[in-house]
Design a protein around this nucleic acid. Sequence first.
DNA 1: ATGCCGTGATCGAAATTTGTCATGTGCTCG
DNA 2: CGAGCACATGACAAATTTCGATCACGGCAT
Lengths: 296, 296
Amino acid sequence: MSDLNNRRLEIDALRAIWAIRHHGGITRAAEALGLSQSAVSHKIKRLETSLGCELLNRKAGTTAFTTEGEELLDYAGRILGLHDEALLSLSKTTLAGRIALGLTEDTTCSALAHILGRFRRLHPDVSVRTQVRMSLVLRAMLEQGELDAAIVQVFAHEVRPTDVILFRETLHWVKHPSLLLPQTASVPFLSFHDDCFYRHWALDIGQDGGIMLETVFECASAAGIIAAVSSGMGVALLNERHLRPEMQIITDRFPVPPDLVYVVRRGRKVRNAALDTLVAEIESEISRYGGLALAS
Amino acid sequence: MSDLNNRRLEIDALRAIWAIRHHGGITRAAEALGLSQSAVSHKIKRLETSLGCELLNRKAGTTAFTTEGEELLDYAGRILGLHDEALLSLSKTTLAGRIALGLTEDTTCSALAHILGRFRRLHPDVSVRTQVRMSLVLRAMLEQGELDAAIVQVFAHEVRPTDVILFRETLHWVKHPSLLLPQTASVPFLSFHDDCFYRHWALDIGQDGGIMLETVFECASAAGIIAAVSSGMGVALLNERHLRPEMQIITDRFPVPPDLVYVVRRGRKVRNAALDTLVAEIESEISRYGGLALAS
DNA sequence: ATGCCGTGATCGAAATTTGTCATGTGCTCG
DNA sequence: CGAGCACATGACAAATTTCGATCACGGCAT
C-alpha cells in the first residue's frame, strides 16, 4: 500500500467513487464525469491499492460497496463538500440582494438543499426566500413575476433555451400485477394533486386516444401513490426512480408518456447578480458531478 | 482560470500551502515536505492560476499570504484534517486497551492535541489517560513504569535510538538591552520551575565555567519568563520560538546552550498495540507535514 | 446449453501532470 | 556594491493519468 506517509486521496478519485455511488456503476459514473470507463476503473483501483483494501465488491456486473467503501464514501462526501465550498468561496464576489426562489417538493431533499445552504453561508447578505409548490403553480408564479427563478418539472419538449437542465426523468404507466385492466370500462387512475401536470396530460389522452380514465385516488405525495399502486388500486404515472420491483410497467394500451425534465427556469426579465451566481453554482455542481443527486 | 468546473484543489497543493504557513516560506516548506523548492513554487503557481487569484504576496524575499491565501488556508486545514482522518480510519485495526501518556505543557496546544482527539474518535475502545508534567518529572514517571510513553524535551545529545523526534529547538541566552551584565557580581537568572532541566544545566555551568548565576525569578510558565526578560529583570534561557524582537541574544560570556529536542519516548518494555498505533500516527503526521506545528 | 448484452478489468500507447536542475531576478544587509 | 537569501522561471525528464481496444464474466433470452 505504498508508504504509509506518501498516501493521499485524490480529490478526483473521491469524486469518482461519489459518482459511482450516485449513478450506480462505473460506466455511468464515467459518463457523468466526462471520462472513459477505464479511467474511472483505474482511479478506483489506484485508490484501492493505495489504501490496501477493497472498496468495491466486483462480484458480477453489479457494483456494491464494501464496508470500507461505504466508510470512504462518507468521508468523500464531507471532503468534497468542503472542497467545493472552498473553491466557490475563493471565486466569490460580494453579493447582496434578494432572491425569490421556487422549488418542487421533490427537489427539496436533493443536493439543491446543500447548494442553497452553502449559498447562504457564502453570501450572508443575500436573502433567499424559498417557496415549495407544484410545478404548475411555480410556473404561474414565474409568469406573474412573483418568483425570480424556480426549479420546475416540464415535459422534455417544452424546455426553453434559457432553462438549465438539472436531470431527466422517464415517466411510466404502472400497475400492480394483480390489477387486470378492464377492456371496456374506464381504467382506475391514481393521481397526484389536481394541479399536477402529469394528470393534465393523462386526462388529455382520454380525449385523444379514447381511453377512459377515472380518477379514484388523489394524493399530493409520491409515497401515497406508490402505496396505492402497490395495493392494486389502479394505474398511475410514475417516475423511474419511484418504481418498485413489484410494479408492472404497462407498455400497451396507453400512449408512451413524454419524458420529463427538471429545469431551473428564470423569471421574465429578471436581472439579478445574486441569482446569476446561484444559477451558476447549480450548473457548476451539475457539471462537476454529472447531474444532481436526487433522493429516491 | 481554466474552466470553472474542471478546477480542483489538489490535496498535495493544500498540504504545500499549509507547510508554507507553518514553516514560514517556500524553501523551508519544500525541505519539510521533501520536495525541491521549485516544485513547491510551481505547485503554488498552478494553484493560483487555477483559482485565478494570488495566494501569496511576493513583494520581497518575504512570503505573506493574501486575503484569499488566508481564506484558502482555513479551508486547507479543514480539508486536510478530514483527509488524514479518512486515511487513518480506513487503515485502522480495531484496538482496545489503555494508554498512559505524559505531555509537557508546551505540547498540549500543538498538533498533538488534534492527533489525540482524532485517536479517541477512531479508537473509542482505547482509553487514553494523559498527564501534563515537566519533562524531568515525566522521565522519572517513565522509569517508574507509571507511563507508557511521554512527549518530553531532552538535550539533543541525549536522544535514544528508540525515541521519535518531534522537532528541534535552539536555546539562547537572552536579556533586555537595558540590562547590563555585571563583570564581577553574580548574574541575575530568570528560571523556570525547580524541576526544569534548563535550569539544571544553567546552574551546572556555574561550577564549570566559573559564572555565578543567582536565581532572582522563578515561574513555571514561559509567559512569565518572557515578561521578566522584557522588563530587564535578568537573563534567561529561552526557546527560539519564545524570542521577542526587543530581546537581545547573548553570545559571549556564557557557554553555548545545547540544542533541545522534543521526542516521544516510550516506557521500558511496554508492549502495547494501541500505543504502537498512536506513535505511528504521530510519526506519520510528522513525515507528512515535515514536523509538528507548535503554537508559539 | 448457446449466444448475446451489459459491466467492468486490463493492456499498451498517447497525453497530461508533476518534479528537478539550472539559472534568473529582486531584495537586504554588511 | 557584492554576497547571500528567497523565490520565479524555463527546459527537460519522470511519473501519472487517460484513452481506445480488447478481454473476461455473469445474467438473460432463445
